[in-house]
Design a protein around this nucleic acid. Structure first.
Lengths: 205, 205
DNA sequence: TTATATACAAACATGAATGTATGTAAATAA
DNA sequence: TTATTTACATACATTCATGTTTGTATATAA
């Protein structure tokens, strides 16, 4: 097989990304070689080098495909104009993410790679900063939602919306980590939704 | 310099571990070579291979030195017999850990390595399981503390001790992760203790 | 005091990964 | 139809990390 049409080329590019996800997941990013990825994608390293400059670029492509859409989803669910009450909005944004992780294997795998199969040094250190920024973003959106809940008199009145948002953010960050690490699902994966609801209910007046 | 006394040898062993911590932190575990570590410790790879079988063994030595004592500390703070009330016990166990991370640079660095400078594949996958086990352990201890708090009628009565313990565990897991990633300290590092107190207060009747 | 084991340093051999350069058949433009 | 890219495969050169082997001075045991 040799030269393909433009659509074919785009297909092999996607194959390479998919292959990289599998290989990264199995061997970790560092131990994955372009040869491994090429083999998994049934191409040679030549093809990989044609589509990507190096492993880092594949990593970024993989990340962008999965993460950016997920961030957008959370943003949407937390939007100011909504027909559900703000606390339920927060609950939904978290449950949706968990639900998406349950349904979407590629997203699940990508999360796992990002969390426990990647070392955040050198070129990857910037990725960490981006993640932190996204987190700040989401936390602010949640804070706004808590403020709306407060003005609707739905909140326990001992805590500020800011404190509640930070607490929720940390809770969810922890949950995502445990969700990913909990391979057999026994500890967290199966009860994630309940934990979220319980967490939110703790704030309800 | 050549053959040393037994105490000298133990010193170089410790130097190698310390060097590994620095190197792992800077370059990530995968990209750190035994040559890097040896150079940082002012010895040759010969010395490293004398004291350790390979990089993995250094990693484990590093981990054991820092983690096991920390786990023990948390266990102690959560002990059943105590002269402080159970909710404060939980609060203290979390604050103590944060305090230790603030004071103890080696511990902080080791945590950072474990969280974002290591890929949990192959030989390292078992480490993840150990961490999970420790987490379960701590969570159980916290649950017991919450149960004591409940029988002392200190708790909001809408939630079970189990749910509260899980929520706290996830919160603290998230906090540790953010604490480590928050390099400049602006987001979480400086307010970690407040966040913990706020988290616990949410459960106080 | 001599023998042996210790605590390394230095040299060696090997394998593996990377990047680049070259080759090539087919698609597409001219 | 021919020329030129495109989308790869193949081959090559180089670097780098690892593990092992050998050498050696000295502590320690006998």
């Amino acid at each position: 097989m040799v030269r393909k049409t433009k659509e074919d080329a785009e297909l092999t590019r996607q194959h390479i990304i998919d292959a990289a996800r599998e290989v990264f997941l199995m061997r970790g990013v560092s131990r994955s070689t372009l040869e491994h990825i090429a083999a998994q994608a049934n191409v040679t390293r030549g093809a990989v080098y044609w589509h990507f400059k190096n492993k880092t670029e594949i990593f970024h492509a993989l990340r962008d495909q999965v993460f950016l859409p997920l961030i957008d989803r959370m943003d949407d669910t937390l939007a100011v104009e909504s027909n559900v009450d703000p606390l339920t909005q927060i609950e939904n944004s978290l449950c949706d993410t968990i639900h998406e992780l349950n349904e979407n294997m590629e997203m699940r795998q990508t999360y796992e790679i990002m969390m426990i199969k990647c070392e955040y040094v050198d070129e990857f250190a910037t990725v960490l900063q981006q993640i932190l920024n996204n987190c700040s973003n989401i936390t602010e959106k949640m804070q706004l939602a808590y403020e709306r809940a407060q003005s609707l008199n739905m909140l326990v009145d001992t805590h500020t919306p800011r404190a509640l948002a930070l607490d929720t953010h940390l809770f969810f960050g922890g949950l995502l980590h445990m969700w990913v690490k909990d391979f057999d699902g026994s500890r967290f994966r199966f009860q994630a939704t309940e934990l979220i609801k319980s967490h939110i209910n703790l704030r309800r007046k």
